[in-house]
Every structure is written in structure tokens, then in C-alpha cells.
Design a protein around this nucleic acid. Structure first.
Lengths: 328, 328
DNA sequence: CACTTTTACACAAACGTTTGCGGAAACGTT
DNA sequence: AACGTTTCCGCAAACGTTTGTGTAAAAGTG
């Protein structure tokens, strides 16, 4: 029942602890025979190194902290998977924190990261965060920090996002090419950079294609509960023939509302930004600009690992590739 | 830049390390004035306790390991959230592992849990796992282990699942009550307990309601790519007026296929088991029996915490509540 | 006042592991 | 045979924290 340690093995084999340690870590200073003896004993008594003791002594932790505002988003699982795959390959483990979209909680979590001696921090910033002091504290402790998905653009942190402007542009252009002449943009939380960028992409595309101001409109859905009402009122009054939907979360209620009103697919076209699951599930399939959560997570983690190993200490801002997916 | 420790504080305040430690942990053996001095200094030099050192000394880790086969499922994020909420309340942290559905990887992960001195392990078992030796190893090291969602039913481990039999029964009964007279069950991987239970619930309900064998059929979709073909062939030949869909993953392609063929919602009714996101997104909304990933994760984590604190060491099998959700 | 008790701190050991250093034995070279 | 080298292992310190024990000084007690 008692956990067996390096000392126990030493006693059992009448060797010194240092020899056991070196045998297990493949140090050349130990003969092949004793190495075998040690490995056999370790297996027999199923020895497992105490990582707390090891990391405590070696002053690193093998931990990458992943901080997320919440988990309900569509592409978060893929993001986690991407992070996980990247860090696992280098022998790191992931310790996960959830800020619940609270800046105070986020600050607490940063303290936790310091306490855990995380070797790197990946953070998708809470929607309500404006102050970045708690992030800076991490950095000034010498711990690399990379923001992903939901980011704050400053010169202090590396970031990985999808190219929101271009994604929105691309989806909008698809609507125009399909023949739409009056467009509505449905957007989320206006405080987020992601929203502003997508709104800008939508607007810029319209301007570039010669749309007059009265030929398009943007509405903001902040409260999902009352959103449907707001949406339908605008749709009925506006006479739109195309709607750009900024996210899966919004598509989740825009589609059924329009379908129930008999507007989709007959009177109104849709185009969305999505990871692809939801548009594929509804009928007729909604064209969408795909953004990969996996890619986002993976890129961010790899950049973080580069910073940890000192390979690329520069602050960089990545945008992951996007591509338009038409209904089959 | 250098990390500041308890010793540094001691030197700065010309106190002994033990006094610092006790001051920070609120031990009564330290006067209010010095406690204040210590706390002030800790804040000023932003001291953060080294958890590796602490846990190493105290022989616990504050870590709960969460082991999942993969992250693509619909209700996994909610499950994670449920686990997270429950353990966080007790001051634990979550360290996450992904087995990629490989039993070998799963065994490796169990070793990792031992090395991390996890205080408890939550595991959703890989689809391909048959041997439970690696789980037993965890237990014999004195670490509680609870299985959730995807479980193996033995007398050795506590489990938390949804009540698959009853959920399937309930969905099936809904179809019958709605007037369906020829039913198809669409099921997933037949190797999983979850599939067998849901198949049984479907069949048992039909039998109880007096359906003759020729009035229903079950098909198994193992490969999602070729699934649509299999499904449509059966549907066209069978003349069904109701389909029971076992999971979100399956609904994801059953719905568009039927809709494209003009069968849903006109000729065929659907009923599913789901966490509720997807059925809400499609139109007309599909009635579903709701199972909560959040509840599953939370219940499992709470049971685990009880076992850790010695409050309820008995092996128990929980099934979380379910309820039928009609379209609005 | 002489005593016991309490208060508030210091001292030091321990947790499991890694690692620089030292050294005996074996081997290789003249 | 005398020396230098290499091989293989032991010794002991160190990492940051907690905690049992020791102890002066202060406070309480009769």
C-alpha cells in the first residue's frame, strides 16, 4: 500500500539512491547489469517516480496551463485537443482552468499558474477582461504566455486567432456572388475584438463591392434569450435576402427562427463562420467559412513551446488559415 | 526575476521560515502584528507558494485526473465543466489526459496518474478497452477511481452513467404515442455497453407495447462515411414512420439525409437521445430525451471526492436523471 | 512573590529526487 | 612496476515547504 520510492529500491538492492536515480534516467555512469537489476526491481515493485519531488528539485513542472473562459463553445473541444496533441509530443501535461468569464477569477488563476510553476500559459481571454496586469505578472515571472482564440492585441503577448476580418469578408462575398442584394449581419458581443473584426470584414467587403449604406445592416445579439425577437423584427422589416451569421452560437438560433418563419431556404440565404459541425447538420446545409479549433490550439501550443525552449522568443501574431465550404 | 520563496521572506523580515509558513497558513501560534507584516511582504514581493514543494512535503497533490477517450463528442465539454465545478469547490485542480481511444495509451496514462500522485481518477473508458488491470493498479495504490459516461460495469469501480435503457425506452414510447406504427432504431458502435443498453431499451419498449417483430428494425452505423447510404436504403425499403436515433453524432447525419429526401418532417417522425443542443438547432425541432453531460461529470466528481475523503468508500453505480423534451 | 500557563517565536528534521564531487577498483600504457 | 585513465558507484547537499519540539518572555494565578 505504501508508495515505493527510490530509497526503498536502494535498500532492496543494497545500492545508493544516486545509483538508482542514474540507472532509471539512463545515466552512463551505471553498468548495464546494475541498470537491468534496477529496472527489474522498479517493474516488480511497480515504482513510479514522484513528479512533485522531481520537479521540485529540478525547478520545472512539465505543466502547461490552459485557461478558458468557458466550455460551451462549439470549437473549444477541438482547441483543447490541438493543445493537448502539441504539448504531449514534447512530454508536457495540461492543467486546465476555467475562468467562467470572470476577470477576477482569471487573475486568481494566474496566481495558480505561478504556484503550480507552470512552464507556459495558454489563455483564451474572458469576455469581460480589460486589464492585462495579471497576464503581465506571469510574464515578468519569466513564464511565456500565448493568447488564443479570444485575445487582446498588444505588443506584449503572442496571439493565435483565426483571421476574423478575412473570414467575414469571405462569407459576405459568397452571399453577394450568390446574388444577394440586401444583407444583414448578425453579430455577438460587441466588446470582443473578434466581433469588431468580423463586423469590419463584413462592412469592408460590402463597401468594396459597391453596396450603399442602405443596402445592409448589422444587428447585435447579446442576449440569446431575447435574440430571436430582435432578429425576426429586423428581418421582417428589412426585406433582406442574405444574412451573415458570425458564429455557431448565433446560427444555432438564427436558423430555426428563419426556418420556422418559412424564410430559409426560400427567401433568404445564409452564410456563417463555423467549425463546420453545425452547418453540416442543418438542411439545406449552410455555406460557411471554416475555422479550425484544432489548428488554433495546436498553433498556439507550438508557439508557446518554442518560447519555452527559447527558440522563438519574439512576440508574434498568427492567424490560422480559413476556407470557404459550400454545400455539397 | 528569481522566484521568491518562504526563505527569502524570512530573511527579509528576520524571522524564521517556520513563522512565515505559519503566518501564511493562519496558524494561531503567530501574533496578529507579525502575521500582517508577513502578509504585506508576501504581497509586496508577490510571493506564490510552490505547490510542488508543498504537496511533495504533505504527500498529496490537490490533483484530480480526468481521462477521456476523445473530445469530439457533444456533451464532453459539459461533462468537463461539471467535473471542474465540483472539484474546484473543494480546492482541487484538474489535470487532463486524452487516451485517443487506445487501451495502451490509457495504461500509460494510469502510470502518469501515479507519478503525479493524483488524489483521484475519473475515467471515461476507451471504446477498445477490455482489460481493467491498469485501473485496478490505481486502486491498489489507494487512489479512488470513478468511471463516468463510458464505463465498464464490475464490482470494482463506482460508475456514473445516464440511464441508457430508460432513456431509449422513453424516446421510443414517445414515438409510439405520437402514432408511429413502424419503427427504426439507429444505433452506433455495438461493442459499447451504452449501445447495447439503448438497443435493449428500444426493443423492450416495443415488446411491452405489443409491437410484433416485423414492425421494427435496428440498424447499426459504425462508419459515419458510409452510414448515409445504409440508412437511406433501409428507410426507403422499410416504410418506417418513426426513427429512434441513439445519439447526437448519429442525428447529425440522419436529419439532413431525411430532410434532403423530403421524408422529415412530413413522412417520418424522429426521437433522439441528446444533450439538447442539436435538436434545438434543427427545424422542426426533434423531440429528445435529455441527458446532461454536466450532471454526469458533476455526480462522478462528487462521488470521487466522497471516496477521497473517506465519506463513502462503497462502490456505487449511479444513473443520472433523464427527461423528455418536446418541441415547443 | 513564586508558581504555572500561555504566547510567540526559533530550531531542525523530513518529504523524494537529482547531481557535483570524490574515490576505489579495474584497466591500459609505458 | 609504476603511472595515468576509465569505469562504476557512494556520499552528501540541495530544492521549498510543513510541522513536532524546544524555549524564552509575557501573562495569569494563588
Amino acid at each position: 500500500m505504501k508508495r515505493i520510492g527510490i530509497k526503498d529500491l536502494a535498500r532492496l538492492l543494497s545500492l545508493n539512491v544516486s545509483t538508482i536515480s542514474r540507472a532509471l534516467s539512463g545515466h552512463p555512469d551505471v553498468s548495464p547489469e546494475t541498470r537491468e537489476r534496477v529496472l527489474d526491481a522498479a517493474r516488480e515493485f511497480n515504482y513510479h517516480p514522484n513528479l512533485h519531488a522531481r520537479f521540485f528539485r529540478k525547478k520545472n513542472s512539465g505543466l502547461i496551463a490552459l485557461v478558458l473562459p468557458e466550455l460551451n463553445s462549439f470549437f473549444i473541444p477541438e482547441l483543447i485537443q490541438g493543445v493537448h496533441d502539441a504539448v504531449e509530443k514534447k512530454g508536457y501535461n495540461v492543467i486546465m482552468f476555467i475562468s467562467g468569464d470572470s476577470p477576477e477569477k482569471e487573475a486568481e488563476i494566474m496566481d495558480h499558474c505561478l504556484s503550480w510553476v507552470a512552464e507556459g500559459v495558454l489563455v483564451s481571454v474572458s469576455n469581460r477582461t480589460v486589464e492585462t496586469g495579471h497576464f503581465r505578472a506571469i510574464q515578468s515571472a519569466g513564464i511565456p504566455l500565448v493568447m488564443l482564440d479570444k485575445v487582446i492585441h498588444t505588443a506584449d503577448f503572442s496571439t493565435v486567432t483565426i483571421n476574423d476580418h478575412s473570414a467575414a469578408w469571405s462569407a459576405t462575398e459568397h452571399l453577394i456572388r450568390s446574388g444577394c442584394r440586401k444583407l444583414l449581419g448578425v453579430l455577438g458581443n460587441p466588446g470582443l475584438e473578434i466581433t469588431r473584426e468580423r463586423a469590419k470584414g463584413f462592412a469592408d467587403c460590402l463597401e468594396a463591392r459597391g453596396f450603399l449604406p442602405e443596402m445592409s445592416r448589422i444587428i447585435t445579439i447579446e442576449n440569446i434569450a431575447s435574440g430571436e425577437e430582435v432578429l425576426m423584427e429586423e428581418v421582417i422589416r428589412g426585406g433582406y435576402d442574405g444574412i451573415f451569421v458570425m458564429s455557431d452560437e448565433l446560427l444555432l438560433f438564427v436558423y430555426p427562427a428563419l426556418a420556422a418563419a418559412g424564410l430559409y431556404p426560400l427567401k433568404i440565404r445564409l452564410a456563417a463562420i463555423s467549425d463546420g459541425k453545425l452547418p453540416h447538420a442543418i438542411f439545406p446545409q449552410v455555406p460557411y467559412v471554416q475555422h479550425s479549433g484544432y489548428q488554433t490550439g495546436r498553433t498556439a501550443a507550438e508557439k508557446l513551446l518554442d518560447e519555452i525552449s527559447g527558440k522563438d522568443p519574439a512576440i508574434r501574431h498568427f492567424t490560422s488559415g480559413i476556407n470557404l465550404v459550400y454545400p455539397r
